[in-house]
């Protein structure tokens, strides 16, 4: 609540200045707002309501404010939540490491090849998500060249030692799931980074050079801070969907790599326990909102908004 009288005073000063009130901005907002209400607010409320109901599909549900569902969901599925956050976090970090140099290269170094390379980045989107994930089954297959190379370089031993795989194969492991997530969400990191780095003002880098900054120092003091909005945008676009993903862990993982998206799928479709499914979805949403809010605040990029 604002301080008494404060608002009124301000509006009274402002009012005479307005010549004709224009409704156009509000009208332009209307479709977007209506969309949000119908496809976000109402479903979110319905989900919240569902999570607090008891009953079953056949006899119907009634709202009983049954908060125990949340307690049960968290105590059963906390390992899946933790696993999803960790997998998505690692995948996000990997996409950043891969995408940053690539985006910089496309944005600054390739001249007229820019558009062509961007098309190459987006090209995988022309195939379905499912097919792209299934392709990794072929890439990481036991008799394939990738596994042969990994075995001859003892990469498989290393991965097994850090517990990313369980045996000397690569498929059906944490490693495979993280690879799939990294690959599938890479374009979501590249595009915002590219859009940002493309606008990078070269005179600032030249100025840094004039002031005897080493290339590394120039990067950390000039390029990196300027690219933060792109980094934050890219990491959000990667992390959020990756945390809720269930295709990669299903097709590339094993019984120890089940992510929370699979749990929601199973509770909603197979067990038909809609309340638990809704509660798990809600907790996932809450966790992501908290992480993102904390992250955006830390990154401190007002330019994003």
């Amino acid at each position: 609540m604002s301080e008494p009288g404060g608002d009124a005073a301000v509006t009274e000063v402002q009012r005479p200045r307005r010549v004709r009130p224009s409704y156009t901005p509000y009208l332009l907002l209307l479709p977007g707002l209506a969309w949000l209400v119908v496809f976000f607010v109402v479903p979110t409320l319905s989900l919240a309501s569902q999570s607090l109901q008891t009953g079953n599909v056949e006899t119907g549900y009634t709202l009983t404010w049954h908060f125990q569902t949340y307690v049960d969901a968290l105590s059963h599925f906390w390992p899946h939540f933790a696993r999803s956050i960790i997998f998505a976090g690692i995948a996000t970090l990997l996409t950043l490491l891969l995408a940053y140099p690539l985006s910089y290269f496309i944005a600054q170094k390739v001249g007229r090849w820019k558009n062509f390379l961007l098309v190459l980045v987006i090209a995988p989107f022309f195939t379905s998500f499912l097919i792209r994930t299934l392709a990794w089954q072929t890439i990481l297959t036991d008799n394939g060249p990738v596994v042969a190379l990994a075995r001859s370089t003892h990469l498989t031993d290393l991965l097994q030692w850090v517990q990313l795989t369980n045996n000397d194969s690569l498929m059906n492991s944490r490693f495979a799931v993280i690879c799939g997530l990294t690959y599938n969400f890479l374009p979501f990191m590249i595009l915002p980074l590219y859009a940002n780095l493309e606008r990078l003002d070269h005179s600032l880098i030249e100025a840094a050079g004039d002031l005897y900054a080493t290339p590394i120092k120039t990067f950390w003091k000039v390029t990196w801070p300027l690219s933060l909005p792109g980094v934050v945008g890219g990491t959000l676009l990667t992390f959020i969907p990756a945390a809720g993903d269930f295709i990669n862990s299903r097709l590339l993982g094993n019984t120890q790599t089940v992510m929370i998206g699979q749990v929601i799928d199973s509770e909603f479709l197979r067990v038909q326990d809609y309340s638990t499914a809704a509660a798990v979805s809600f907790v996932l949403m809450a966790i992501i909102v908290v992480i993102v809010a904390f992250y955006v605040r830390r990154a401190g990029t007002e330019e994003l908004v």
Partner: peptide, 10 residues
């Protein structure tokens, strides 16, 4: 809304 969703169930 929460309550309405609830009562909408049978």
């Amino acid at each position: 809304g929460l309550a309405a969703c609830g009562s909408a169930g049978k």
